[in-house]
Design a protein around this nucleic acid. Sequence first.
DNA 1: AATATTGCGGTTATAAATTACCGCAATTTG
DNA 2: CAAATTGCGGTAATTTATAACCGCAATATT
Lengths: 74, 74
Amino acid sequence: MPKQKHEALQIQFGEHIQKIRLKKGLSLRSVAANCELDDSNISKIENGKFNVQLSTIVELAKGLGVEKRELLEF
Amino acid sequence: MPKQKHEALQIQFGEHIQKIRLKKGLSLRSVAANCELDDSNISKIENGKFNVQLSTIVELAKGLGVEKRELLEF
DNA sequence: AATATTGCGGTTATAAATTACCGCAATTTG
DNA sequence: CAAATTGCGGTAATTTATAACCGCAATATT
């Protein structure tokens, strides 16, 4: 059945997120420290495992210290 | 239990989406015709009922004919 | 070398999004 | 007026995200 219908999108998003994080020299745990997500889940997001929700995008932006719009610039 | 933890965010997003749609003079059904979402669900999104997923944001952008980043500019 | 940090995979439970319909009441259009 | 359009609420089934952990292997730090 529909398993992983949006994988390509999730991977693109994950790579984008990781690029932003690494450019800032942040660790997964330091991002997690600034938002309501834990590092293992951020890792999964970066690796394209999740089709994240709006609220999660907002948390990521908070954790990364960027505007949410930037997370969709990929 | 946690029912509607992100309601404020969802409502803001919904209002933003609707504003874009109305500015373009589109009906819910015409937006739906350009993407993989049905009009009743777009209505629910506009009314803040859903914490939409990334793939849904991308579909909305397609349906509305705008860049996905614009959907997070609110 | 010993310790800490880091990335990441796994798990289980729970809440929720999505799909794909129906149908109505109100407004618009011909 | 008649017909079409429109916004939107409801539903059921299915899939999925998320939270909140654990722990390990590799790398970095002291």
